[in-house]
Design a protein around this nucleic acid. Structure first.
Lengths: 205, 205
DNA sequence: CGTGATCCTGACCAATTGGTCAAACTCTCC
DNA sequence: GGAGAGTTTGACCAATTGGTCAGGATCACG
């Protein structure tokens, strides 16, 4: 665990192996449900070797969360004042839905964390995340004031987009259990449904 | 842990104290994150005394889930073919939102379980729950075929109602963190937003 | 090749956890 | 008030868990 700025090839490889293994384990079991042995096994390393790179279980978890936060919030950052408002919001929802499909482990990592009261990231939620959301909420409110989308509460609009899209990653077990024999094209169906939902609700008059 | 049919007053009191304590602890920490000591403390009982009433941690968890399942699905059961379709569905969403407000622990109990792959209730999801949902989906499809609501995928409509309403219980920490100083009337705002969302999306033409 | 830094491991540890058990206590009901 | 069922507990246990440590293996580099 040397604090040198540059990383050895070995460090590079092992640290990313650990983070990947940790993502797998933490996202499937939550912080407390995950064990260092599981992570070590998944990373093909010995437990003491894990602790050579990260000084504690918490340190791994913290590193994971902060590594992934930017990725996770990128789509909201990309919500731009440039385009056509309704399209812009629908495209945001679609981007989030894509992320639920392609990064389900990341989604579940945050879901686990937040369901249990967000003990490790409350400061981020109340700080940078709140700032970002408030900023985008202003934009949406402006669009509504200009009559370019219908009058909706921007915060709750954003929450509903998070909820409906992340649902397909976080509650995957339930979705699959209920859609059972009807094949795996359910992300396409979800995309169609959500597009309709938000387009009709946001289009003015 | 006598298997007698009728329950002593003491059994009555202690079993419900245990289930209430377990709901508190399991919903806040997940199955694996919860400990018997925590539950025992919350129920004001000794740990061996807990295990006198339930023979294992799993048994407590199982009892909780099955006790709460009916309550949890009642609103969907109540979705009736009688009323005006759009009202009926919007009222279903409102009932679910009320439950998120009044029974957040129950919501988080199920959320924890499902996020982690639903290991203890997969059979219920794939069995009775799927049956119920498929049945209500048929009803919704019928309404759409009759032109009384717009053409939407009924399964994804139901998922989106679950997602948007339970979000306020399951991700409460995040919602509160972001809405921070803006007071606690956010359930009313959510109700208004969701009513608009589903009413506009479901009203035909 | 050698040497210092980096990397890795087996053995070990203290704390926690789910669970057991025999003995003691307490309630109920005749 | 006493007998038997029902209730409670302290002491205990084996397994698991997060974490340490001294020493050995391996790498980079002059």
């Amino acid at each position: 665990m040397p604090e040198t700025a540059a990383r050895t090839r070995i460090q590079e490889r092992n640290i990313s192996a650990i983070l990947d293994a940790a993502l797998e384990v933490f996202s499937g079991a939550g912080f407390r449900g995950a064990t260092l042995d599981q992570i070590a096994r998944a990373a093909s390393l010995s437990k003491p070797n894990l602790l050579y790179y990260f000084k504690s279980k918490e340190a791994i978890h913290r590193a994971l969360l902060s590594e992934l936060l930017d990725t996770w919030l990128a789509p909201l950052h990309a919500l731009d004042s440039g385009g056509e408002p309704v399209d812009e919001i629908v495209r945001y929802a679609m981007r989030k839905l894509d992320m639920a499909r392609e990064l389900p482990r990341e989604s579940r990592l945050f879901a686990n964390e937040i369901v249990q009261g967000a003990p490790h990231i409350l400061d981020i939620i109340e700080g940078p995340l709140k700032t970002l959301v408030d900023e985008k909420a202003s934009l949406i409110r402006k669009w509504a004031a200009e009559g370019r989308i219908s009058e909706v509460d921007p915060h709750h609009l954003i929450f509903s987009i998070w909820a409906t899209t992340q649902h397909y990653a976080d509650f995957d077990a339930q979705v699959r259990g209920i859609l059972r024999p009807e094949r795996d094209r359910h992300f396409d169906d979800a995309a169609r449904f959500l597009t309709h939902l938000y387009r009709t609700a946001l289009t003015p008059d």
